[in-house]
Each structure stands twice: as structure tokens, then as C-alpha cells.
């Protein structure tokens, strides 16, 4: 556990030393702030209670584009710099390395989300905010991002170039978001139509977010998103292990 904590600290340090973290943070708060201001104005104009769900949905869409930036360097950079060999020979297991990198990415995400909580307090000052529903929305966002991050981590472990890892992660994330739309285009009357549609509709992480944003915790998306996360972490560990066999 101590090893894991040390690895997480090391990874977090890397994030906060690079200017990328602050560029992402400032950009994200600025875009979120603009949306927040517009939404507050619209809620007031239409005499509606202010709701965070639409803001969080847009934030989720932005985070899908931000995710490759966060995950692309996780393992690809170590390979590129040759530090992966040092890490592999250190007294830590492959699993610990992968989990530490994943945990650091997730903690960094939470750090990015932290300023948006200030907006919730601002909204509560002027109106009413459904705090438990908003918290559930954040939970959904973290679960969705953890699934996307685990995919990004896996892709990063396969690539030795950060840019390649980032581009591939972006394409995969984008395809996942589009999977529901693609499902609608699959002809339902063919032999493969129905199962293909079912699978494509199933894998869209964005679809699962809807429930969370509305303040509902459904066990199905929780299990699905956790399964995706665990599976890709498992695959990443296998990829790191495979370096020893080759």
C-alpha cells in the first residue's frame, strides 16, 4: 500500500509540474463558467429552478476530449524516455504501477472538477440547488471518466508515442460516444442487425450518464462502467507483463 501511495504521489507530481495541467484547468473553468452563466440566465428568464444536469452533461462531453490529454502520457512517455525499464525493476508489481497511474489520473480529474463545485455554491446562494442530485451527477461523471481513462491507459501501454496514444484514445472515445448513433444506422432486419444494435447501444458510456445527471443511481450503469474500468486495467497489466515474456 505504501508503494502504491508513493507511486501515486510521483504520478501526481508529474501532472502538477507540467504547464498542461494548468492550461487544461483554466480552459475547463472558463468554458464551464460561460455555460454556467448562460444557464443561470436562462433559468431565471424562463422562471425555472436551476439544474446542474445540463451543465454536467456538457462538461462530460468536454472531458471526453480532455481524457486523451490526461492519459496519453501515462505509460507511453515512460516507454519513450526509457524509464519504464527502471520502473519495472523497482520493487513494485505491474499491477501497482498500473493502478497508481490510473488513480493519479482520476485524482487529477477530481482536481479539475473541484472548481466547478464552487459554481454549485454560487447557484445555491441565488437559488435552490438539489445537492444530492448534483453529487450523483458528479459521481456519474467520475465513473464515466474512469472508464474512458482506463481505455486511454490501455492504449497508452500499447503505444510508445504519446501523440499516437492520444490520437487513438480520442478516436476510440469519440466512437464510443457515437456508438448509439451508429446503432440507429444498423439495419435491424438483417441477421446481425439486432445483436449489433444491442452491443452498440450498450457500450455508449454517455448514455449511462443520463441517469446520474438526473439524480438517479441505477445499478446497471454503475456495474457496466466499473466493469469497463476493471477490464481495461486488467488488460493494461497484462500488456506490461508481456514485456517480460517477449
Amino acid at each position: 500500500m505504501r508503494n502504491l501511495a508513493a507511486l501515486v504521489r510521483r504520478e501526481l507530481g508529474v501532472y502538477f509540474v507540467s504547464p498542461m495541467a494548468y492550461i487544461i484547468l483554466t480552459g475547463l473553468i472558463l468554458v464551464f463558467g460561460l455555460m454556467f452563466w448562460t444557464e443561470m440566465g436562462a433559468a431565471s428568464d424562463f422562471a425555472m429552478p436551476f439544474s446542474f444536469d445540463r451543465l454536467l452533461a456538457t462538461l462530460a462531453a468536454i472531458l471526453v476530449f480532455v481524457a486523451p490529454l490526461i492519459t496519453m502520457r501515462l505509460i507511453a512517455e515512460e516507454k519513450n524516455r526509457g524509464t519504464i525499464e527502471t520502473l519495472m525493476t523497482a520493487p513494485v508489481t505491474d499491477g501497482q504501477v498500473v493502478v497508481a497511474k490510473f488513480a493519479a489520473a482520476l485524482l487529477f480529474l477530481m482536481y479539475l472538477l473541484l472548481p466547478t463545485v464552487a459554481h454549485a455554491f454560487l447557484a445555491a446562494k441565488y437559488g435552490t440547488v438539489d445537492a444530492p442530485a448534483t453529487a450523483t451527477g458528479y459521481l456519474g461523471l467520475i465513473l464515466m471518466c474512469s472508464a474512458v481513462f482506463s481505455i486511454g491507459l490501455f492504449i497508452s501501454s500499447l503505444c510508445s508515442s504519446q501523440v499516437t496514444a492520444g490520437v487513438v484514445t480520442f478516436v476510440v472515445s469519440f466512437l464510443l460516444i457515437l456508438s448509439s448513433l451508429i446503432a440507429d444506422r444498423v439495419p435491424a432486419d438483417t441477421w446481425y442487425g439486432r445483436p449489433a444494435r444491442a452491443v452498440l447501444e450498450r457500450i455508449d458510456p454517455f448514455k449511462y450518464l443520463e441517469d446520474f445527471l438526473r439524480g438517479i443511481i441505477d445499478t446497471r450503469p454503475v456495474i457496466y462502467l466499473l466493469s469497463v474500468t476493471v477490464f481495461f486495467i486488467f488488460l493494461t497489466v497484462r500488456v506490461l507483463e508481456s514485456r517480460r515474456w517477449r
Partner: peptide, 9 residues
């Protein structure tokens, strides 16, 4: 599956 309504109301 189970659905939990977390909204305040």
C-alpha cells in the same frame, strides 16, 4: 437492477 432516487425531493 435497482434504481435509487437521490434527488432531494
Amino acid at each position: 437492477f435497482t434504481r435509487f432516487d437521490m434527488t432531494a425531493e
